[in-house]
């Protein structure tokens, strides 16, 4: 099947119910997207599918054939993603950093759909888990990115 990832088309020959996460990581060597729980609990695997934040660990790859998939590898090439990254760096959000690919992608999806989010919008969209507890820095960075 054909996948469009970060604007590039990839042919993959794989069982159609394989989660998108493992196609990215093991077939296409794009390891920026992380495995955390495999159950759509933590959000470390968040990517954008047609602009929507999507948990790739439970997304069968066949369901996104033909969709526009964006991963963390291309985030800095996206005007909204770039603002998010700069806000993440400016706010020194990351600690261990393992969840932050997913956090950055969730924030990028939010700001693409809601460029000027309220605090409630941010709370509603930024629900990924972070064991280092960077939640306050994440919220501050999203607010900054929205104003950039």
């Amino acid at each position: 099947m054909e996948l469009t990832i970060n604007g590039t088309k990839h042919q993959v020959d794989i069982e159609p119910d394989t989660p998108l996460l493992w196609v990215l990581r093991d077939e296409l060597a794009m390891t920026g997207t992380k495995y955390g729980c495999g159950l759509a609990q933590c959000g470390a695997c968040t990517v954008l599918v047609d602009g929507q934040a999507t948990r790739s660990c439970v997304t069968p790859v066949e369901s996104v054939a033909g969709a526009d998939i964006m991963t963390i590898e291309a985030v800095a090439d996206d005007p909204v993603g770039q603002k998010v990254v700069e806000a993440w760096v400016a706010n020194q959000v990351a600690q261990c950093g393992y969840c932050q690919s997913g956090q950055v992608m969730a924030a990028t999806a939010l700001l693409k759909q809601t460029p000027k989010p309220t605090d409630e919008d941010i709370a509603g969209a930024m629900v990924n888990l972070c064991r280092c507890g960077t939640y306050n820095a994440i919220a501050a960075a999203v607010r900054d990115a929205a104003q950039a």
Partner: peptide, 13 residues
Amino acid sequence: ARLDARDKSTGKA
């Protein structure tokens, strides 16, 4: 500033 802040914000770490 942390040395790893940008790599950890762009999936490169």
